[in-house]
Design a binder for these strands. Structure first.
Length: 423
RNA sequence: GGAGAGGUGGCGGAGUGGUCGAUCGCGUCGGUCUCGAAAACCGAAGUAGGUGCAAGCCUACCGUGGGUUCGAAUCCCACCCUCUCCGCCA
């Protein structure tokens, strides 16, 4: 949600910010509605002042038993009451906010220009795609031998679901547990167990509503399955006024994530790369405005640490203007190299949302020594997607005979097993 | 799911139709006192919107949304949440 005051202060700059994302100008219409709102407020408040004064007189008149005077005043107050009812500032405010709530965040100046992913910029690469002495298989080809089961998943739930059994089920659990411990024990994050079902206000707070309702699953009682733990974690501060001493607040959660849009693109139909349900370790930071840029770098480094410790090949890219998500001012994607697929694929996305979500959530802090309140900054990042990490591990550490080497850091979670053998 | 009770300012807790944005207590902040601290005493302090150069003035907000009324924290309706008991259950 944008600050109408900033729009008013510089409408041209606001429209220019939208143009970077390829969105049409909106300042003029928002300001027109805000003008109507202010005019209606003036009328309403003037009428209320009159009504309040006359009401006081009515009360005084009745107290001294002057019913005739009271009745006369009642007739007089009617005009003010009608005038207050006729002016509808809340209608104009709702119309204004409907526009503002559907507009994406203003981008960081450092975000590269461009309207799609072709304009993304690779910042650095860790490791290099390895040469295999054999033709590396894709994860679903490897997985079959380990009981990666798409047929039964389809029977139980439909397409875009996967069933894992035995060592792969354990490997998924190992990845999640290990990542969670890494972030809580070494990166200063606090583990949180969150609801997987949330209400409208929560989904609105992080920006999924009102514009992207079709991307999430809705329950029959009006709740939503979370598309990411970012939603419940970030909304923990919704409506709160925090003390500076509580910041930064670093939260992490391992959760299932549910995405209804996952199948609509018709891409990645084979395998478990793009699913309606997947596990993810999420990182969320709530911090002071002046700290969010550094926090963004820190958070991304925490996610990178996961990939490095697993022994994966990865690179960091900064998303272009047009590819940056709705609520983000700046986003780094981490892409992992998949030898079987011979491609870089997204495994983490770390975004600085600045005060965009905080405004929607009304999440503020009280500056130490200062007066009043200011909006917090919020950041979120995957640390990392567990399902995709599983894919990357399978494809990266596969052997010629179809067995898979277990990354050292995961072995304590795998009962000490060093090599997974099919069958 | 059934029955009952209740949601008021950071917390506790008054207030049941007429200057109530709200008595009071605790906590917080500033001051007096003190070598310093405690105690005591004095004082300050909600959020948002409108208006003004400013001091200030005005409006709204007592779980949320409606309604009744000249006037609602107070009455009515719906919803949300909390607590107690019963039932059910991992």
């Amino acid at each position: 949600m944008h600050d109408i005051k900033l729009v008013r202060a510089n409408p041209a700059a606001f429209d220019a910010a939208l143009a970077r994302r390829g969105a049409p100008p909106a300042a003029a219409e928002a300001l027109r509605l805000d003008d109507l709102r202010i005019e209606a407020i003036r009328i309403t408040q003037a009428a209320q002042t009159t009504r309040n004064e006359l009401s006081r007189q009515i009360g005084a008149a009745m107290k001294r038993g002057d019913t005739q005077e009271a009745e006369r005043l009642k007739a007089e107050v009617k005009a003010a009451v009608d005038a207050a009812a006729a002016a509808t500032p809340e209608v104009h405010e709702a119309a204004r906010d409907a526009i503002l709530a559907a507009l994406p965040n203003v981008l960081d100046e450092a975000v590269p220009e461009g309207l799609d992913e072709t304009a993304n910029v690779v910042l650095h690469t860790h490791g290099a795609p390895a040469n295999f002495a054999f033709t590396p298989k894709q994860h679903f080809e490897l997985g079959e031998a380990f009981g990666m089961d798409f047929a039964n998943a389809a029977k139980l739930a439909g397409t875009r679901f996967t069933i894992l059994r035995g060592p792969l089920a354990r490997l998924e659990r190992a990845l999640g547990q290990w990542m969670l411990n890494l972030h809580t024990e070494q990166h200063g994050y606090t583990e949180v167990s969150v609801p997987l079902l949330v209400n409208d206000a929560t989904l609105y707070g992080t920006g999924q509503l009102p514009k992207f309702s079709e991307d999430s699953f809705r329950t029959t009682d009006g709740r939503w399955l979370i598309p990411t733990a970012e939603v419940p974690l970030t909304n923990l501060v919704r409506g709160e006024i925090l003390a500076e001493s509580a910041l930064p607040m670093r939260l992490t959660a391992l959760s299932a994530c549910f995405r209804s849009e996952a199948g609509s693109a018709g891409r990645d139909t084979r395998g478990m790369l793009r699913q309606h349900q997947f596990q993810k370790v999420e990182l969320v930071s709530i911090c002071l405005p002046q700290d969010s840029e550094a926090e963004h770098e820190r958070m991304t480094a925490c996610a990178e640490r996961v990939l490095t410790d697993l022994g994966l090949t990865w690179r960091r890219i900064v998303l272009s203007a047009g590819d940056t998500g709705f609520g983000a001012a700046k986003t780094y994607d981490l892409e992992v190299w998949l030898p079987g697929q011979q491609a870089w694929r997204e495994i983490s996305s770390c975004s600085n949302c600045r005060d965009f979500q905080a405004r929607r959530m009304d999440a503020r802090f009280r500056p130490a020594g200062g007066k009043g309140t200011e909006f917090l900054h919020t950041l979120n990042g995957s640390g990392v997607a567990v399902g995709r990490a599983l894919i990357a591990v399978l494809e990266t550490f596969q052997q010629a005979d179809g067995s898979v080497l277990v990354p050292e850091v995961l072995r304590p979670w795998m009962g000490g097993v060093e090599m997974l053998h099919p069958g």
